[in-house]
């Protein structure tokens, strides 16, 4: 059986375990909440994590497209970028997939698969950095944008460019 087929066959099992492993990065009393509440509005972190993992998994079955991969990772990474994770903890959940797949599939998935997971991790790291950059940008420009734009329109300060705000 080819690797993709057996991955697809075990899709639910793999994703469930991957999800479990991912939310284990939170304190257990938090993980309990994230894993249990099904309503996506009452549990945004759990549902975004679930959604991302499913989409990333489906990407793995195809030829990897870095752009699409990053988009699939976006919801979960965007959240982890503002939580108290170090960079390595924020993207580390990707590597859990290797172990999980090895344990679930009867025949070893091989180096190709490992390389794919590495690519996912790199994409996750890319997205993590973009999110962090956007946080720092917001941090640097927010209040100036708010106040100075109004002042500028009122002619109280000279025209501002985005660079001036930084």
């Amino acid at each position: 059986m080819n690797i993709n087929k057996s991955l697809e066959k075990n899709r639910k099992k793999i994703i469930d375990q991957w999800f479990e492993a991912t939310i284990k990065s939170y304190p257990p009393e938090t993980a309990r909440v994230l894993g249990r509440i099904k309503n996506r509005f009452d549990n945004p972190v759990g549902s975004a994590t679930q959604e991302s993992l499913e989409n990333v998994f489906d990407q793995l079955l195809k030829d990897l497209d870095p752009g699409k991969l990053e988009d699939a990772l976006d919801p979960v990474i965007r959240i982890r970028a503002v939580q108290k994770f170090t960079a390595s903890d924020a993207v580390g959940f990707v590597f859990e997939l290797k172990e999980i797949v090895k344990n679930i599939l009867e025949n070893a998935p091989g180096e190709d698969f490992d390389r794919k997971v590495d690519q996912v991790a790199l994409a996750a790291f890319n997205r993590f950095m973009k999110c962090r950059e956007s946080i720092f940008l917001i941090k640097a420009t927010e209040s100036k944008k708010r106040i100075h734009r109004a002042f500028e329109r009122a002619g109280l300060v000279t025209e501002l460019k985005d660079e001036d705000l930084l």
Partner: peptide, 17 residues
């Protein structure tokens, strides 16, 4: 109340329950 707080839901920090 534990899972009703936006700060708990968003940060995952249990002391925000």
């Amino acid at each position: 109340c534990a899972d009703k707080c936006h700060f708990f839901l968003g940060t995952g920090d249990p002391l925000n329950m």
